[in-house]
Amino acid sequence: MSVKYGLDGQVAVVTGAANGFGLAVATRLADESAKLVLVDRDEQALKAAAEKLGGLAVVADVSQESEVDGYVAAAVEAHGRIDLFFNNAGIEGRMAPMTELSVADFDRVWAVNARGVFMGLRAVLKVMKPQGSGVIVNTASMAAIKGAATFSPYIASKHAVLGLTKSAALEAAPYGIRVNCVAPGHIDTRMARDLTAQIDPADPDGVFRAVSESVPYGKRYGTAAEVANLVMWLLSDESEYVSGALHLIDGGLNAG
């Protein structure tokens, strides 16, 4: 049974809401009777999520400034305010050594994972500051605290999310707004499965099993629902004194 946090009636914007972490958090927020604004560029999957959970569906590409401003404007038009923001949308990009990546490969990942997070923060903080309240959770990754060969655009983008989180937390604190980020490790999502296929197209299941064995706690991948548990706590008043921090959820993988 999920913990209840008393978020009923609060206006919650979730990007990347059609699947993965976004859908898991949106599902929990719907259970709390929050007023949902669901954002994703996958129109079909977003429509299905909105039909199941309720709320306002806004098709948007978070790498585009006008579309970021548009989903924030749609939330304010519908509800007059934004209380909670899960700034989550992201992509993995292509895995390859730096010498084999194009600038376009880098820019594609950076546009969504870093610039999109920045633009979301900027637009939502403009709404939250006059309110004098609000809570924001960004999706980083354990990639925010370590490097990885053949994954440089993603690693750089998630380091950027951590930096943006810390800066935003300091700017927002005088207005009663908290900003944190979650840093998932190996979580069983569509993105994780795509990465195993990139690592070894001939045996992605073998990669999945090997990665599972590397996790100290349970020798398994985590679930999107487990990430949602952490996000919900950070969005709630239970984490009232927590801001500007990276919160790992990785089964102890980075404990050593």
Rank of each mutant, 00 (worst) to 15 (best):
A78Y: 08
G218C: 09
E100L: 13
L234T: 08
F208G: 00
A57K: 10
F118M: 13
S133Y: 13
L195R: 12
S141L: 08
E32N: 07
V161G: 05
R190H: 13
N87D: 14
G185S: 10
D61N: 14
T27W: 04
Q198M: 15
K126P: 03
A74W: 02
V227W: 06
A197Y: 00
N229C: 01
P97D: 07
E213T: 09
E240Y: 11
L164I: 07
Y175A: 15
L36T: 05
T196E: 12
K129F: 12
F106H: 09
M128L: 04
E67W: 10
S157P: 02
R115C: 09
P201T: 11
D188P: 02
G55K: 06
R94W: 01
S239G: 10
V161K: 02
I91R: 03
A224C: 01
G244M: 00
V137L: 09
G134K: 01
T165D: 02
G176I: 12
G70S: 15
V62F: 07
G55F: 10
Y221L: 14
D31N: 14
S102V: 05
A225F: 04
S2A: 13
R209Y: 01
A34T: 10
Y154I: 07
R108A: 15
A78H: 11
G20W: 04
L46G: 10
A60M: 04
L253M: 12
P204L: 03
H247K: 07
I187H: 01
A18D: 06
G147C: 03
W110I: 15
A48F: 00
G6Y: 06
S102Y: 03
S157I: 00
V37C: 02
K4L: 13
G244L: 00
Q64G: 00
F85I: 05
L170C: 05
G120S: 10
A73D: 13
A78R: 15
E51Q: 14
A160D: 05
G222Y: 10
P174R: 02
V161W: 02
H186S: 14
S102I: 05
I91F: 01
P174A: 07
K47Y: 01
R178L: 10
R115P: 03
L46N: 06
L29N: 04
V231I: 11
P201D: 07
G93M: 09
Q131L: 13
N113A: 03
D250Q: 06
G252V: 11
H247F: 14
D83H: 03
D42V: 01
D107F: 02
D42M: 01
E171Q: 14
L162G: 06
G132P: 06
G16L: 03
E77D: 15
D31M: 12
A183H: 14
A197M: 01
